[in-house]
Amino acid sequence: MISAPFDYVRANTLDEALALLAQNEDAKILAGGHSLIPAMKLRLAMPPLLVDIGRIKDLSYIREDHGQIQIGAMTTHYQIESSDLLKKICPLLPECAGHIGDVQVRNKGTIGGSVAHSDPSGDWPAAIIALNAELVAVSKNGERLVKADDFFVDLMTTALEAGEILREIRINKSNDRTGQAYAKMHHPASGFAVVGVAANLTLDRNGGCEKASIGITGVSSKAYRALAVESALTGSALDEQKIANAAAHAADGVDINGDLFASEDYRRHLAQVFTKRAIAAATERAG
């Protein structure tokens, strides 16, 4: 389990990291290393150069600015899980973080690394979609904003281009009639999501569902927005029947993954069950 040889540079600033990426086409960013190093040990990845961004100070933060939550890409799962600010203003994030791997993994793994890696069973992409986050990508040529819906392109493929680094994740703060929840079926061996559903609901003043945003991971080659579920929820009060009817659309139009552990049919069923659970929990919290 020894990686192929590579060169290693620790970048002290974002500019330094961007310059190294621009000069070395095949270089890879090293964040928490908890997806990349296992892949390198299996020689599934053999980058000639690793650019370690782990010590760049201003990439690790959680803050609130004019109604917007900003999270630096190098913020660890544990920092998010234990953030009192996020527990108050965006509880979906700490809840989702607590479902990732184990304590040691959460100490090292970062939200930016997860999102950039776009593992089909990774947890963050579901939450990023449900929260309608915006992702700040930076390159030598400047910054651009990518919406969550445009970010996850395919299996382990994102909208990030060569030479770009994900710098920050931005989420608009929600009002106090919002309820959020993450429901996950853990793979019994790996702990990754067989199915993970993030629900983010806002009720109107009469208790009807004003906005519903549902992100689902684990089911397909990439995390996706469950549009049919969202539209079935919006517009009226959410009772058990309404929620069940909506959740039945969880995997509509999706190319479902089947594997040794969970067949296509079983995954479709799990997607519906966990969507129902996530929505029910979010509805309760919104009230």
């Binding site: 090293l30 290393g33 908890h34 296992p38 544990y78 304590v103 040691q104």
Partner: peptide
């Protein structure tokens, strides 16, 4: 101070 799996970290990262 943080628990880490040392099989999933390179020694150079711990400089």
């Amino acid at each position: 101070g943080q628990a880490v799996k040392s099989c999933t970290m390179f020694a150079v990262q711990a400089d």
